[in-house]
Amino acid sequence: MLDFLRMRAIEGLETVSGDRYSRSISFDGGHGWFSVAPGDSEALVLTLDFPDPLAKAQIVARIRRLLDLDADLAPIHRHLCADPLLARLIAARPGLRVPGAWDGFELAVRAVLGQQITVGAAIRLAGKLVAQYGQPLRCVAAPAGLSHVFPEPARMAGADLASLGMPRSRGRTLSGVAQAVLDDPQLFAPKADLEHSLSALLALWGVGDWTAHYVALRQFREADAFPAADVGLLNALAALEGGPVTARQLLARAEAWRPWRGYAAQHLWTAFAAP
């Protein structure tokens, strides 16, 4: 989890220092920040600075979703370990969880920025976006490196985002997602099931199957979401099993992983990214 967050930390918004993850947050108009680090035994220690004490329970719940802390891994592992490859990967990383998101709009923006480019390039673009359109963090004692909160949809809806250095079509998609959130503030609220989650996302201009499944997995916490055409997944399976794999073959293989395909995907991504 920490390696995943470290690779995707946006300058000004997040930092990973040693084994501590910190980020700025905006919630109901207020600004704050939190840090999470390992504590004694298997516990995590949360440091939260937010001006409204009544909001802290909701903020903690969102942090738990971000870190996937409420997932019961035992039944997931029992099911996935029927596949010898996944049994090996799970044995190597038995505590691996699926990273969530602090905010659905932020995650959708990250996903669109990451379309057809590397993680590093997407994070650099996200840093430019935060610096130009995010509000300065209104917090006195924030950790070093936290300077802004993520841009609000209203700041992005009418902006020329392509000027940040991305294809004009991608800038149009980002502006469209921002306008869609303004039109429907519940756009990224949990849906009834995976089908409804995907249909809500695929209705947005420029959002395709990969982006929809990625957001469904991390924001809607749809454990069976599975972007079968993802290059990272295809490369991971090919590298781990020693031969080329098509998206059709991967999708067929993943049928046995239902209803936990998202956790299988996280193990494949992590194993392939590991040094």
Rank of each mutant, 00 (worst) to 15 (best):
L237Y: 02
R23H: 09
A144W: 08
D103G: 12
A111I: 08
A91W: 03
T246E: 04
G39P: 05
R93Y: 14
A121Y: 03
V36G: 09
V181L: 15
R110A: 12
G100P: 14
Y263L: 01
S197C: 15
F27Q: 11
W33Y: 12
A256Q: 11
T47H: 13
S22K: 02
Q116R: 15
A111H: 07
H79A: 05
A61S: 15
L2H: 08
V16N: 01
A91I: 03
W210G: 04
Q249T: 06
V45F: 07
Q219K: 14
G232I: 09
P185D: 14
M7D: 14
S41F: 08
L161S: 03
P244Y: 00
D68K: 15
S199F: 07
I25T: 09
S169M: 14
I123F: 02
D160Q: 11
L2N: 04
D160N: 15
P99Q: 12
M156C: 03
Y263Q: 01
M1H: 07
P227A: 12
Y133F: 15
V231A: 12
R6S: 11
G104E: 00
G176W: 03
A252F: 01
Q132F: 09
G127C: 13
Q249Y: 05
Q179K: 04
L233V: 10
A131G: 03
A228K: 01
A82T: 10
D70A: 13
L201C: 10
K56W: 07
E222N: 13
A239T: 02
